[in-house]
Design a protein around this nucleic acid. Structure first.
Lengths: 252, 252
DNA sequence: TTGTATGCGTTATCAG
DNA sequence: CTGATAACGCATACAA
């Protein structure tokens, strides 16, 4: 539990010099910088998290809001939570888990107490209670999934429409003329989830693949995805729920 | 972003009175307490997380170390993480997620920076790198799962031996004489995981159910579980991996 | 029962 | 290029 003062004393410099030597926010002589780093290393110094948060007014923590419905696919959501955490860590951020009913209340709490610098909202429903809440928060919030009304929100999502089209194209190409769709449970569809298969089921895509209600959603998804490089690289593929295995011989 | 000073001013009292009125750590006149609570409510006051942490020297955050092996059962681990978070919240604690390689490094980091008040270690292997690390940390740590050497550690786990015995008893009672065991992949066994089926597979329980190497482990598990009420009530059942479905008619 | 004042460990704003 | 020092918002020991 060495403090910055200990490092300063050990290196024979002032506290602020240590701070700047470590943050690199102002130029330091090579010699003193090395002395400081050596001292810090020697003492195993790491800045006290809360002190740093308070002074810098940044927590380096991102809250992940993840209600877990009874019909939620654990594996899929695990992937999102894990990936979010991994990417966050690569930016020196930690992630806080807000689950079940605390997915909503926790958002308000972590925003109001400034525990979180930002919020990632998972498992988004069409009509999600976290949508109106997010609009009232001073805390930057990103929805992974598109609610019905995205006004004033920052949302990213996979392009399920395009995924469905690609899948169907492939099936048609290989000679299939009848295509079955394995979707989610009725309750998942009913609560307005926009998971892959749910989205496909609702859009009832038919040749020549004219999507009914989802034109604007598709554009929005594309636009948002372009704005989020992390999504393109980091998000796990969710299209497997839509996939189907071609039989060894083409159907009649 | 009302501060405690704002509340104090609104209620016409001092800062410390507000603090004590809210924490209840010293007696306050009913009248002033109500004025303070009203003012706090009115302003939507919630204490600034980092300020509170710094002053109280407690973060109210528990880190959850959860390496995610390629063969990890997402659903099972999701359950543990979720349940841990839920129980933590009921004690006014938040949980931080440390995954993949950060499961190890994050423990050191969150302990050294005092980001976490405690650490919960999931997905424990027989020979786990987090075991020696935990011994060096000043941060209270609990292992959910029993490593080979529990010296100086606080560990809790389900009693897999008893579960296996119960399952086998039931099967024998219903007339079965040949019992198959569906276990984990070889790699899971190889890395020394102590998951239910892995544990069962290694112990090779046979009538009259004499466990080979696991006597001490069983005792340890029992002892630790007794010391942890949360485990008995909060932990999800993991025995389903061991379960088997009786056929409609008893075998010959 | 309440108010005053110090300290928590950093960051950042000033001077030098 | 470096050193003092004032916030940051709260908790708590100490006074009254």
């Amino acid at each position: 539990m060495a403090t910055i003062a200990d490092v300063a004393q050990a290196a024979g410099v002032s506290i602020s010099t240590v701070s700047y030597a470590l943050s690199g926010k102002r130029s330091i002589t090579q010699a003193t910088r090395e002395r400081v780093l050596a001292a810090a290393q020697e003492l195993g110094y790491l800045p006290h998290a809360s002190a740093r948060m308070l002074a810098a007014n940044r927590s380096h923590i991102i809250a992940v809001s993840e209600p877990v419905h009874p019909d939620t696919d654990d594996a899929a959501h695990m992937s999102f939570a894990m990936e979010t955490t991994k990417v966050a860590r690569s930016h020196n951020y930690d992630t806080l888990l807000l689950v079940h009913d605390d997915a909503l209340a926790g958002m308000r709490r972590s925003a109001a107490t400034q525990l979180a610098d930002g919020i990632v909202v998972l498992d988004v429903d069409e009509d999600d209670a976290r949508v109106p809440l997010a609009r009232t928060l001073a805390c930057p919030t990103v929805f992974v999934g598109l609610p019905a009304d995205t006004e004033g929100l920052l949302c990213v999502d996979l392009d399920f429409e395009a995924a469905a089209r690609t899948a169907i194209d492939r099936l048609v190409e290989t000679g299939h003329r009848q295509i079955g769709l394995i979707s989610h449970r009725r309750e998942t569809l009913d609560r307005g989830s926009n998971f892959p298969a749910a989205s496909c089921a609702r859009s009832r895509t038919t040749p020549p693949y004219s999507a009914s209600r989802s034109r604007s959603r598709t554009r929005a998804a594309t636009r948002h995805r372009e704005a989020c490089a992390a999504c393109a690289s980091g998000c796990p593929s969710s299209t497997r729920s839509c996939s189907t295995r071609p039989p060894t011989s083409p159907p009649p």
